[in-house]
Nucleic acid binder design. Structure first.
Lengths: 197, 197
DNA sequence: TCCATTCTGTATCCGTGACTACAGAAGTAC
DNA sequence: GTACTTCTGTAGTCACGGATACAGAATGGA
């Protein structure tokens, strides 16, 4: 059974990707419906029929971005080796991800600030951020349980430092820092976690 | 010689401080002229006569905030003691400044993102940020010249790490991290700079 | 007291952005 | 082919935000 009525004239997933690009570059407020319709090559009614209103579209875009980001985390953190190596690789990967040629600079979730008057968006952004943060905490605790942390370094403290660095890297990327600079910082920060010998 | 004509019915510096508060909390776009006039208790013509348009007011507010921030930096960095102690004190002070009760959370300059379509504001924000960053670089170089840095730690690399941390602390504060958490991160990060013994 | 000057309150103007009404187009089911 | 359903393009509605016109109020100077 195929769909009834006139078929959609554009690919929904492609359009969603285009919206992702637009929101990632310009943020929620600065991206107008006109921006989107022009970039996607469709009319406003098509956009509204496919995605609902602007807020719903943005939330769907956020979910897409988040899914990709988590997929990336899963990959780099899947390494069986000592946790410290995995975290180091993750940080380096994030530094590179934030400075990928052809993609907007920085992290869509970490540097994005939702407008006041959009508490739903603010809450969702905060939720996603704290979700990543919690993931880091879990990683550090398993590392601690495995005896990979020095006595005087609490896992939550270490997780907070790593998380702070991730946020800072995102902002610096947005400000025009190049890939080499971000990589350098990602490497240096790992010296606060001396390899257990 | 006093001013001619009807005197202004409000204190300009007090109003500027009110605008600072508003912009700091809500950002440029989310703060409407109506918000400002309501908060300051004045009408739109008074506001426009005193400060020019919204963009000019924001720029003046930025300058005020920056001046205060630099004044704070000057104070903490004036300490004659080893540079490392001064930087540690500065980081701790920033962590506290970003979580001062009664003030908006985070840094107005570091977490503020100007809307696309306002290149002047974007440029000014970037300029102020890179100015602080340059200040940190200078501090680290003098520390290096004084032999306070270990051999394998480049001053610019260290400055980048500190700066990344400052940016990250600002974001975390904005996300609701409490003062103790920020202080903890500020202290931990200094372990990448071992005291020269 | 009268004028020149500057500020203030009210009521707008104007542009823009989110969203939609409506008519026509493009499909499927019979 | 006809009916029914769904999508699309054009044009427009509605609300809101930045900015201002204008009349009146408050000062200094002669």
């Amino acid at each position: 059974m195929t769909a009834l009525g006139r078929p959609r004239g554009f690919d929904r997933t492609v359009a969603l990707d285009g919206a992702l690009q637009a929101f990632w570059e310009q943020g929620f407020e600065s991206t107008s419906i006109t921006d989107l319709t022009r970039r996607l090559g469709i009319g406003p009614p098509s956009l509204y029929a496919a995605f609902g209103d602007k807020r719903a579209l943005f939330l769907e875009v956020l979910d897409l971005y988040y899914a990709r980001f988590v997929e990336f985390l899963d990959q780099t953190l899947a390494a069986p080796s000592p946790r410290r190596d995995a975290i180091a690789a993750m940080l380096l990967g994030i530094a590179r991800f934030y400075s990928t040629p052809g993609l907007p600079k920085g992290c869509m979730i970490n540097t994005m600030t939702a407008p006041a008057g959009e508490p739903i968006l603010q809450a969702r952004l905060a939720e996603l951020r704290s979700s990543v943060q919690a993931r880091l905490q879990r990683e550090m605790r398993t590392a601690a349980d495995a005896g990979e942390l020095p006595q005087d370094l609490q896992p939550d403290t270490l997780a907070a430092v790593i998380w702070t660095t991730v946020l800072g890297l995102s902002m610096r990327s947005r400000d025009g820092a190049n890939r080499a600079e971000l990589e350098s910082t990602a490497r240096s920060i790992m010296t606060i976690w001396p390899p257990t010998r």
